[in-house]
């Protein structure tokens, strides 16, 4: 039996038996990444919309920086957040290092630039189309921004999903700030890394399949919603 087939068998076994360890890991992965994306969206979306609509000095520089941050290595974020949250660091007194909260924090920092950069792009495209009409109707910049966000809601859904995909799939940051503690901060990706280092490659790959299927299912659902909405709303 090849490694791929073994991995599939493993994945199927874990799913069929609804392995409690697996359920916990998957649920923590989803909760942490979901919370991170919510926070990243709250921060990134207004930023993206502002850059899309407003004209100010340094705007181009900001766009370049944001786009560059799309490639931010997650270990760097992990390390920075670790130093920030470490007892010896400026936010050490909160005592949240090696907890899911720290992982949410790190992932939110990782994802916020993605949401900001991608939403900036779609909102700016829409702004080009809407600008004269909205200004003619007397929309103030903030109002225009909100209207654009609402009108771009379906393409922004894709943006948010892209952010979620990055969050749920990254391992560098959560490994450092979470510590991969069994039952506390172990998520899909760190579990995969652990199984890999224990040489259980089929199990690691099996977990990988499960992660992939989750992300796939989520994206498929979003795509269906988007198609239906686009058809309905035009």
């Amino acid at each position: 039996m090849g490694a791929g087939a073994q991995a599939l068998t493993h994945a199927a076994e874990l799913l069929v038996t609804l392995d409690p360890g697996l359920v916990q890991i998957v649920s923590l992965s989803l909760r942490v990444s979901f919370a991170a994306v919510v926070i990243a969206t709250l921060a990134g979306l207004p930023l993206g919309a502002t850059i899309a609509v407003a004209r100010f000095p340094g705007r181009q520089v900001l766009i370049v920086i944001l786009n560059a941050l799309l490639g931010l290595p997650s270990v760097v974020v992990g390390l920075a957040v670790y130093l920030l949250l470490s007892r010896a660091g400026p936010l050490g007194s909160m005592g949240i290092l090696f907890t899911p909260s720290a992982m949410v924090f790190a992932q939110a920092i990782l994802v916020a630039p993605i949401i900001a950069a991608l939403s900036r792009q779609s909102i700016e495209d829409a702004w080009r189309e809407y600008e004269e009409q909205l200004r003619s109707l007397g929309a103030a910049p903030v109002q225009a921004g909100l209207t654009l966000v609402w009108d771009c809601r379906f393409s922004l859904l894709t943006t948010v999903l892209a952010g979620f995909g990055r969050a749920v799939a990254e391992v560098g940051a959560v490994m450092i700030v979470g510590g991969n503690i069994d039952g506390v901060t172990r998520v899909m990706t760190t579990a995969i890394a652990l199984e890999t280092s224990m040489g259980d490659l089929p199990l690691a790959l099996g977990l990988g399949f499960i992660l992939l299927s989750l992300v796939l299912a989520l994206n498929a659902a979003a795509q269906v919603i988007k198609e239906a909405a686009q058809h309905r709303y035009g």
Binding site: Q133, S136, T147
Partner: peptide, 26 residues
């Protein structure tokens, strides 16, 4: 004042809501 453009720009909402939107801004 109001303006109608060569290519109408409609918001992703109902016809009624599009008009109400303009009134809200006014």
């Amino acid at each position: 004042q109001a303006m109608v453009f060569q290519r109408p720009v409609m918001l992703r909402r109902s016809a009624l809501a599009n008009i109400a939107y303009g009134l809200k801004l006014a």
